[in-house]
């Protein structure tokens, strides 16, 4: 489900079926590699939309978690933990963090749930129809990770 009122109504009617939240992690950086940062953010939004389309009835896509790249690892991990905690306590047994920013790999162990790091593809120089193919290939590899996660049950949170 998407972050709009139509889907919110659908959620209210069927909330017991929706147990997975996807948070796109999108960085901001104007000093260094500005365009690369934009490309990574764009790519993750694209992937998020595509996953939402496949798993509409069980997955809620949350507004992006945004941060400055200069924000320290500890601080942003701590903030993300608060988001996770809030969602987990409100019925989302699975929380997936989706990012193209490799920095998150450094704090992966400290995050309460699953980080999916997907390196951005340079789609802007590619013909649109071919770009679509590339994205759907990627999606086909990501979907099983999510269904496997469902199979294995929610991760325990320490509290």
């Amino acid at each position: 489900m998407k972050w709009n009122t139509t889907d919110a109504d659908m959620y209210l009617k069927a909330s017991e079926y929706v147990d997975t939240a996807i948070i796109p992690l999108i960085p901001l950086n104007w000093k260094k590699d500005f365009k690369g940062t934009v490309a990574r953010g764009e790519f993750i939004s694209l992937i998020t939309d595509e996953i939402e389309k496949q798993f509409k009835g069980r997955v809620y896509t949350i507004p992006p978690f945004t941060y400055l790249e200069e924000e320290s690892d500890e601080v942003r991990a701590e903030r993300l933990k608060q988001w996770d905690d809030h969602l987990f306590k409100n019925g989302f047994a699975h929380v997936i963090y989706l990012t193209s920013d490799g920095d998150w790999k450094r704090v992966e162990e400290h995050l309460p749930d699953t980080l999916l790091w997907i390196p951005a593809l340079p789609l802007e120089n590619v013909e649109p129809s071919y770009a679509k193919d590339m994205v759907s290939q990627q999606i086909r590899q990501i979907l099983p990770m999510i269904t496997d996660k469902w199979q294995s049950g929610p991760k325990e949170r320490e509290s």
Partner: peptide, 8 residues
């Protein structure tokens, strides 16, 4: 489109 909640 699944007629339950719209997954594929």
């Amino acid at each position: 489109v699944c007629t339950h909640l719209g997954c594929t």
